[in-house]
Every structure is written in C-alpha cells, then in structure tokens.
C-alpha cells in the first residue's frame, strides 16, 4: 500500500448549520426586491387614488390578474426548464372563442370545460412535440404556433365575438364569488398552490429545475428529459385553456381577438418574480408577486383616469426593467453576501 492516509484537512469545511449567510444565499433576491416594489406601488397608488386600497378594488384586482396567475404558474415551469411559450395568448383566444361556439351550439358546460382545457393541452402537446422531440427552439415553435392558433380561431369566427348565454353554468362561474373574491381568483389561488407543490415537492419539479440548469446531467442520470420538457409545454397549454375559459366566463363572450399581448404580461410576471430567464431557478410565489405588480399597474393607471392604451406601454417597460433586474440578480446577491460578511 502507498501513502494514502497522510492527507491534510479537506477544503472548505464549514460548520454544519444553516447560518444567516446560508439563508441569505438561498433566498431569491429578485423576489425579495419585488415584495418591496409591491409595498411602494400600493402605497403610491393608495395615496394617488382613494379607491385603490378599498376591499372592492383589491378583490377586483384579484379577479383581473387571475388568468395571468393561472398561466404564469405554468409558464414558471416552462421558463425554469429553459424554454419559453409565446403561444399562450393565442391559446387563450382559441379556447375562449371555441368554447363560446360550442356553448352556442348547445353543448353542456360540463363538456365544454374539459374540452376547452383539453384543447389547450393539445396545443401544448404540439409545441412540446416539436420543441422537445425535434429540437426546434421553443421560441421559434411557439412563435409559429402563436400565429397558427389565433389564425384558426379567427378563421372560424371571422373575427366576431361569440356571446355566451348568461344562464349557462360557465357564465355563472364568471359571476360567482366566495368570501368577497370571485371564483376566478379562488381558482387562480388553487392553481398557484398546486403549482408550488408540483415544482418543489415532486420529481417532475426537480427535473424541471435540473433541466434548466444542466439538461445533459439530468439526461445522464437516466431521466427522460424530452418528456419532461414536453410536459412543461403541455402544462402551459392547459393553463392557457383554463384562462381562456375564465376570460370567456367573465366577459360573457368568446373572441378570437381576446388576450392580445397576454404572453407578454405572463412572461413579465414570471421574470419580474425572480424566475431565472435562462432556466434552472423558478419561484411560484415570485410569479404571484409579479402578476400582482403588473396587474396593480394596469388597475392603478385606470383608476387614475389614464388612457387604457397606456397599459401596454407600461407593461412593456416593466418587462424590460424586470429582465434587467433578473440579469443582475446574481450581482446583487454577491453584493449582499459581501455586505453581510463584512457585517458579521
């Protein structure tokens, strides 16, 4: 035998406990920052408009952001796995228009609801099949399907909005409320909780994170990474189906022109919340916060009597700001760690 035992102490051996430094290291800096932004935003709008902080308006805000939360939670999976889905807005419009058509044709809500979600899942499957199994970048695939899906809905409805009889079950969901919040808001909350459980406590969630970080490592560990990536896009398609139904229910009509620019709002919410744009790190709470911020901006501007056409401009600017912060999240983390180390 040779000299095997005469080695020095191993490198980097730190005490085995969760020190404040470790906790700070693990906290998502962008998410923490965004909580601060919410406080400032709500304070500012609250001062500028006496109605902003009323329960009625906050409940209204929850209803307004519900579709963005539902799709945002699914989009968190897509972006965390290192992909993107630009087709969600078109899928929302497709499902809203199609389900309104089916209801008008006399089909029961109990059938239209699952059909609407399945239609969304189908478009997600199409996206996922091309992206994961044919290695076409998801950006390109979903850019193309974004055009195709809305195109089909426009072709069928010729651009007309299809009304939904307000006595139908689906329309009644749009009006229903519980404890002062709409059914949409409660559904969004349930989706967010389910999304958090799926992302943080299951193998699927673990592989989504791993694939966004180093796909090859996960593949070599014996995981079917293509399937996981495809399922992420099926998830965002299905969520867009749910959002399409919610929007149709709330508006009492389905239009192929609805949810224009919706993908932008959703991606802004996800990235604003601190999910890494390049994958590997996702936060459902962050997405919820991001959706509240983008929603509050739109809601607040309307209350202040600003032109509704200002909203897309502000949302776009917020998206750029969010990405700017997202890309510098790591720098900020380093800065924070350095300050903390100096302090202790």
């Amino acid at each position: 035998m040779t000299a095997r035992t005469d080695t020095a102490a191993p490198a980097g051996s730190a005490p085995p406990r969760l020190s404040p430094a470790v906790l700070w290291q693990r906290a998502n800096k962008s998410t923490l920052l965004m909580i601060g932004v919410i406080v400032v935003l709500f304070g500012a709008f609250g001062i500028a408009s006496p109605t902003f902080l009323t329960f009625g308006n906050l409940s209204n805000l929850a209803t307004q952001i519900a579709p963005a939360v539902v799709v945002g939670v699914a989009m968190t999976f897509v972006i965390t796995s290192g992909q993107i889905d630009l087709s969600v807005g078109s899928t929302v419009a497709f499902v809203a228009a199609t389900s309104a058509e089916l209801l008008a044709a006399g089909l029961d809500s109990a059938l239209v609801i699952p059909i609407g979600i399945a239609a969304g899942a189908f478009w997600g499957l199409v996206n996922g099949w091309f992206a994961a199994y044919h290695r076409i970048p998801p950006f390109v695939v979903t850019l193309a399907t974004m055009s195709v899906i809305r195109g089909i809905a426009l072709l069928r409805t010729e651009g007309f909005s299809v009304p939904i009889d307000n006595r139908l079950f689906l329309a009644r969901i749009g009006d229903a409320s519980f404890l002062g919040f709409s059914a949409s808001a409660w559904i969004a909350l349930v989706v967010a909780v389910a999304g958090a459980v799926l992302l943080y406590t299951t193998r699927f969630g673990q592989y989504i994170t791993g694939i966004g970080s180093q796909e090859e490592s996960v593949r070599r560990a014996g995981v079917n990474t293509r399937r996981v990536k495809m399922l992420a896009l099926v998830l965002s398609g299905s969520a867009a189906g749910v959002a399409g139904l919610l929007i149709a229910a709330r508006l009492g009509s389905g239009s192929a022109n609805s949810a224009q620019g919706f993908e932008l709002v959703v991606i802004a919410a996800v990235v604003l919340g601190g999910t890494d744009l390049f994958g590997g790190r996702g936060t459902i709470v962050g997405t919820l916060i991001g959706a509240v911020i983008t929603g509050a901006i739109a809601n607040g501007l309307t209350l202040l009597g600003m032109s509704p056409f200002l909203t897309p401009i502000v949302t776009g600017c917020v998206l750029i700001l969010a990405i700017w912060i997202n890309l510098r999240g790591r720098d900020m983390a380093e800065l924070g760690a350095r300050l903390l180390r100096r302090g202790s």
Binding site: Q206, G210, G212, A221, R281
Partner: peptide, 27 residues
C-alpha cells in the same frame, strides 16, 4: 470530467438525481 451535476439543485438532490426517494407522489 464534467461531473454531470446540476448547479441550481442542492447537494442531496444531486446525489439522488434520477432516483429520489418518494413518499407517495412527493420526494
């Protein structure tokens, strides 16, 4: 040489990558 680890997953998650112990549907 490239180790096949995932940077954003914790030490335990990497040790058990692809064979995580489960309790029902959860890790």
């Amino acid at each position: 040489q490239d180790l096949a680890l995932c940077d954003t997953i914790d030490v335990a998650g990497n040790l058990f990558l692809g064979r995580e112990p489960r309790k029902g549907p959860f890790i």
